[in-house]
């Protein structure tokens, strides 16, 4: 049952990701990205991390991507016909794809990725609740990075106001 759901979400995510790269119309590409985010949320639920799943939908699909779509619609760029492509773009891309493929095969063949379980096993999460685990970690071990993030956001807000007030 779980494996069926996994392949379902994984397939949707891969197809939508191909759409993000392949579709010429930027609005469609952005929408495909939304589909990718939502299917990732499904995968996170399967990994017993519902909080991350919901945050993914709420923040990426619901807020950030909406702003992307907003900007794309306002600028309404012409549908990409491939005229602006640089000459050396294709060989370079092929080279990178080749390197990535080699890397993927090597990692899978050598099993370099560690498979050790951390202290947060599904049992622990089920016992304490996903949100509690995330919240406790955020406000104890990761308090400094967390506060730094809020400072970063403040800087961004101040920057926006400065830029907007100039005119």
């Amino acid at each position: 049952m779980e494996i069926i759901v996994f392949y379902l979400f994984a397939a949707i995510a891969v197809i939508a990701a191909l759409g993000v790269v392949g579709l010429r119309n930027p609005v469609y590409a952005a929408l495909c990205l939304a589909v990718v985010f939502v299917s990732f949320a499904g995968l996170y639920v399967l990994l017993s991390a519902p909080f991350i799943a919901v945050a993914q939908v709420m923040i990426y699909a619901g807020a950030i991507l909406i702003l992307f779509v907003f900007v794309i619609m306002l600028l309404s760029p012409p549908v990409d016909q491939g005229e602006g492509a640089l000459k050396w773009q294709k060989p370079l891309a092929l080279g990178f794809v080749g390197a990535l493929a080699v890397q993927l095969v090597l990692v899978l063949a050598l099993a370099v990725l560690p498979s050790a379980r951390g202290s947060l096993t599904p049992e622990v999460i089920a016992q304490r609740g996903d949100v509690q685990v995330v919240g406790a970690a955020l406000f104890s071990d990761y308090l400094l990075p967390f506060e730094m993030t809020s400072l970063l956001l403040l800087v961004a807000i101040v920057g926006v106001i400065v830029l907007a007030k100039k005119r």
Binding site: M58, A61, A63, V131
Partner: peptide
């Protein structure tokens, strides 16, 4: 009954904007 139901409601609500934005565009 999920332990993120409240956030789920907010997430679904934030997706509702797509209908209006896409309709308008």
């Amino acid at each position: 009954d999920v332990n993120v139901a409240l956030l789920f409601l907010l997430a679904v609500g934030s997706l509702g904007i797509y209908g209006i934005v896409l309709g308008g565009w």
